[in-house]
């Protein structure tokens, strides 16, 4: 897990965009399965066997999404049965399954992305676009927890003053509004003080520089190049899949197989990196 968190954030962002973007614009069932498996494996590698509630929601979402298409889309030549004078076709069912699988796979990729991209990495990536924006972001990210603590303090003070009872809905609603109003005044004033203090320390006098923990290492460059090449390979050797009016899949050629292998490797890269570290650790422990 540490190994993947040490990778350069820009390389990581590009990797996640490639791996999820490739599957988003494809309706090839084999590719979808590869992607789903890679994403799930990464999820389990990062979190272990936890988060069953989320998995449950995701499965429910999958079922609803898969059913949506055959109910509302009546394209396709093979009619399975007729419902309310509307034909339900095999092709629409298959398309629904594939679209739902795609959405679930992308959700898992983005979940892993959010987990791996902590706020310092986010700042690093955004800082590349604009240093001022990075400053704005870092201040905002700092304010969110600060507001939480301050709001708790204000509400405790009001409770201690006896301004509201907890068991009264109107009272607690009013209290909520009052706390919010106090918070707004406090945050604005606090913000101004921060700004003045920044100006006094010379903010805006020179060109903005920034400090970051991340550098480009050979591993990062390798990781980035490998993911670009693999994604390009799988995009070039795309296998055409047409759902309507009849399911038509291009024959499995050597080229298509190369595309699949490339995408499979792309999807497995993070798990491989995590796994390598775990194996190394085990071996070292064993030798001691």
């Amino acid at each position: 897990m540490r190994a993947i968190e040490r990778l350069n954030p820009i390389a990581l962002t590009i990797y996640f965009l490639l791996v999820s973007g490739r599957v988003m614009f494809s309706n090839d069932p084999v590719l979808l399965c590869c992607s789903l498996m890679g994403a799930l494996a990464l999820h389990f590698a990062l979190h272990g066997l936890t988060g069953w509630k989320t998995h449950g929601y995701t499965i429910a979402l999958f079922v609803v999404m898969a059913l949506m298409n055959p109910i509302f889309n009546h394209n396709g030549a093979t009619v399975l049965f007729v419902m309310n004078d509307n034909p339900v076709t095999l092709e629409a069912c298959l398309y629904g399954l594939s679209a739902a699988g795609m959405i679930v796979a992308v959700l898992y990729w983005f979940r892993a992305f959010s987990f791996v991209m902590t706020s310092d990495k986010l700042l690093y990536v955004f800082g590349g676009i604009s240093p001022r924006l990075a400053l704005l972001l870092s201040m905002t990210l700092r304010y969110v927890p600060l507001f939480g603590t301050q709001a708790r303090k204000v509400s405790q003070a009001q409770k201690a003053l006896g301004l509201y009872k907890e068991d009264n809905i109107v009272d607690s609603f009013k209290a909520g509004l009052r706390v919010f109003s106090v918070m707004v005044t406090w945050t604005l004033e606090n913000g101004i003080i921060t700004a003045d203090s920044m100006t006094a320390r010379g903010y805006g006098t020179g060109r903005r520089s920034r400090y970051s923990l991340f550098r480009w290492r050979t591993e990062d460059a390798l990781f980035l190049i490998l993911s670009l090449v693999l994604c390009a390979l799988s995009a070039i050797f795309d296998r055409a899949v047409v759902y309507y009016p009849l399911l038509q899949i291009a024959p499995l050629t050597v080229r298509a197989t190369i595309g699949y292998v490339a995408y499979g490797m792309l999807a497995c890269m993070p798990v491989f990196i995590c796994g390598k570290e775990a194996v190394k650790w085990r071996v070292l422990m064993y030798r001691m």
Binding site: L136, M139, T140, Y143, L146, G191
Partner: peptide
């Protein structure tokens, strides 16, 4: 910088 800070406060 004051404007900048107010924007970040509102975002938060």
């Amino acid at each position: 910088s004051r404007r900048l800070v107010i924007v970040s406060v509102l975002t938060a």
